[in-house]
Design a binder for these strands. Sequence first.
DNA 1: CTGCTCATGAGGTACGTGCCTCATGACCTA
DNA 2: TAGGTCATGAGGCACGTACCTCATGAGCAG
Lengths: 347, 347
Amino acid sequence: MNEIELKRRATVHDVARAAGVSLATVDRVLNGRAGVRAATAEKVAAAIAAIGFQRDLSASLLARGRDLRLTFIIPDGSNEFMASLADAVSARADQALAERMHIQTRRVRALDGAALAASLDALNPHDCDCAIIVASQEPAVVAAVDAASRRGVAVMTLVSDLPGTQRRLFIGIDNVAAGRTAASLMGRFLPQGGSVAVIAGSLHLADHIDRLAGFRAALEAEFADIPLLGPIEGHDERSETQAIVGDLLKRHPDLGGIYNLGAGNGGLVAALEASGRGGAIRVIAHELTEPTRRGLRSGAIDVVLDQNPDGEIRAALAAARTLALGDNRTVVADPIEIGIFLRDNLR
Amino acid sequence: MNEIELKRRATVHDVARAAGVSLATVDRVLNGRAGVRAATAEKVAAAIAAIGFQRDLSASLLARGRDLRLTFIIPDGSNEFMASLADAVSARADQALAERMHIQTRRVRALDGAALAASLDALNPHDCDCAIIVASQEPAVVAAVDAASRRGVAVMTLVSDLPGTQRRLFIGIDNVAAGRTAASLMGRFLPQGGSVAVIAGSLHLADHIDRLAGFRAALEAEFADIPLLGPIEGHDERSETQAIVGDLLKRHPDLGGIYNLGAGNGGLVAALEASGRGGAIRVIAHELTEPTRRGLRSGAIDVVLDQNPDGEIRAALAAARTLALGDNRTVVADPIEIGIFLRDNLR
DNA sequence: CTGCTCATGAGGTACGTGCCTCATGACCTA
DNA sequence: TAGGTCATGAGGCACGTACCTCATGAGCAG
């Protein structure tokens, strides 16, 4: 009656038997070692497909006495979200180690393509299986990603993608959708006759570009009469963003809303509070961090769109494990959801 | 220069050495076998704590030639969310198997405590390490959960909790917060002078009770002048809910909003569309399923609060692995976020 | 002291995989 | 035909843990 041990996982032994070869040959094929005729390798590959063999990652790591080595490269600076991303990484480090994943984190100057590229160039497959980077779209970074990939260091992008490169996977939200959502909420909340200003961090960041595109498209489609100011680049810096917002508020008395699709929210909130126009302007920002939380509570910010750094790190770790199986099929990660936060559902 | 193999994970050998006992004794302690004096067990426990030993789950499962056995018990019926929960389980089955977790799913009649209890009673530790159930608050279920726990079958609750029992963990959203969020959005979106009706599935479900409490409290605090109708129980059934909504619309011409905190949304949307008052009533519902998606697109529903079944299953599997380490410390799971969906950010 | 129980140690095998050595035999070339 | 190269097989050891058997010695009751 009990259906215990119905199915047994296929092992390398099963593959050997099915392919009519020895264990050693299966091993040579699986681990890409030389000394196997193409025809024999074919037989083995066919057997693997036929019986649906999947390498046992844990046993493999155990046998090699080796942990998976991951390197996170995260922008440094006054961007609170990046800090929380780094925090999320260290919060997972212990759990990851228990699953034989060794995590290293490096911080590089934000929006500095050369620094990111240099950091990538320093990685070699001997001590890093996979690099997880927050990419900016610059030629040096593109080249470094492809070079790392050729060297045998898999690369995944986090938060901001780098399409058209050898990066194996992007972990992050659908930023076009995020921009659309911002537009739709802005349109609903905006008082009659106001204009909307858009602030971005950098137009070299894929995520910011995507948000802007989504925001523009949705606003045009649903609220075509709302005038748009910007985008203005605040470089994700607190002080620069503060200056921009202060200036906007001073020079545009008709300003009804601000969409900050980048970081620097400390400056955003400070400028709003200093202006005395706090609750009168509809403000949408990104990422639940200390300044945006404060802004939500005080009413300076109406909506925060969030991408849940902790969930992203979790997804990245899971994806890295899958990548490590050496699967050359496309790896898919669980999608990261866009969180919408109002004053009322603050975590 | 390279910092390879800085730290080695502690093994049972290290524990034996640190405690000054043999491997066999460490093994007896770790696996709760008899034949160890209390004083010796103490020494081993102290050594484990001192060197921070953590059992390697993968190696353990490998050695036992045994998968972790998990049983999901999910309500059956016309509740689309429960269907998507079951789908999420089967979607993860393969991946779980690759990590040596064997998943079984059972469906039992919704809101039928006796059926759920019987299903739990049928589980024995020989073929089930952990049961994951969607609980309803009934004495038979409480008893069955505690009995299973005593028998050696760990129990976790999913979606709807069962506090005051031996259940090891609850995986789900903060339903009080969800109710508060619904109230806050309803208050903002509601036209002047309308009343709000609340529909629940069952007041035996902890999640529904919590949502109701949160909704009431927040509405009272922020929008005390909005009259409340209900709660009316729709038993998470499509047709019953449809009848309730049709009746509400007919008998309350001043009705401004509906908060359906349970399921049966197919009926909700059908009744709204049939009434011709589609877009005029502010409607908030739970769970992104086929009917609520349709409702969002057509404008019949304004907001859907979602709890991401796929993420819940993932969290449940991760938690089950942690539980299996036999850790008697409290296990914590990643929190599940409340998703807020408007027409604009539909996945 | 004898005979017993019981805590503990010693050491083996197994799990699935990686990596190593060595032997064998087929085939090619000079 | 001799010598070489090369594909393949056979088998062992290791990783961290589980589980088994057997030996040893301490402690105790009679």
